[in-house]
């Protein structure tokens, strides 16, 4: 009798906590717009599941909202990308409840950070390629050519004051979850390096720009 009631309790709990369960729907309805978990029902039943800096995201178009578990549950768990998505999700969650958070992301190589000392005027193009690797763009002109190297960095900081949504569920004060304010400032900048070569493929000048400053060598 005890065993059967335990199984029944576990079954009821799994249904209540599933993607279309009562607790899930209550979570989505009450704190879904501000929850670091996002809208669980949409993420559970929707397709094209992925994780962004804002948390888990999925498309709901044409999917049944009463599905208990994701249609592609094993693929989501089993693929290596899931671990990266999980790490991003954990980071997004920690960011959402942190009073102050900074984040810095770099895309592309590091060639564009500054002009290497070896790149002096007259250096052949082969030296530049050996030092910096292949460029993002290499344009051949009538009187020479130029190369462009590019690296993008995304920096952001956020300020949060108030009761985090998960903690607000535990505080028995009506409307306490509303006592919060978030300010997010992000800046995406590209560090670029441009090399000019003459018709004999010898370096003529190099110009780099990073943030507001630019440097030149010729």
């Amino acid at each position: 009798m005890i065993r059967s009631s335990g199984v029944g309790f576990l079954l009821a709990a799994s249904i209540a906590l599933s993607g279309c369960g009562l607790i899930t729907l209550m979570h989505d309805s009450v704190i879904g717009p501000v929850s670091p978990l996002g809208r669980i029902n949409t993420v559970t039943v929707g397709g094209d599941f992925h994780v962004t800096e804002e948390g888990p995201v999925a498309e709901l178009a044409g999917d049944s909202r009463l599905r208990m578990y994701p249609r592609d549950l094993f693929r989501r768990i089993g693929t290596p990308a899931s671990y990266w998505a999980a790490a991003q999700g954990i980071e997004a969650f920690l960011t959402s409840i942190s009073p102050v958070a900074t984040r810095e992301t770099h895309f592309g190589g590091t060639a564009a950070e500054k002009i290497p000392a070896e790149l002096q005027p007259g250096v052949p193009v082969g030296v530049a390629l050996a030092l910096l690797g292949p460029p993002d763009v290499w344009v051949r002109r009538e009187n020479g050519s130029f190369m462009l190297y590019r690296e993008v960095s995304d920096r952001s900081w956020s300020f949060y004051i108030g009761v985090p949504p998960p903690a607000a569920l535990l505080v028995p004060i009506p409307g306490i979850a509303n006592a919060r304010f978030r300010l997010v400032s992000a800046r995406e900048r590209a560090s670029k390096l441009m090399l000019f070569f003459d018709e004999h493929d010898a370096l003529v000048a190099a110009t780099a720009s990073a943030d507001d400053a630019s440097s030149q060598r010729e």
Partner: peptide, 19 residues
Amino acid sequence: CSLALSGCLYQIKQVGDDR
């Protein structure tokens, strides 16, 4: 001020060099 800012989010993102 806390009451006025309750539930607010202000997110600004700038992309590129606007010189």
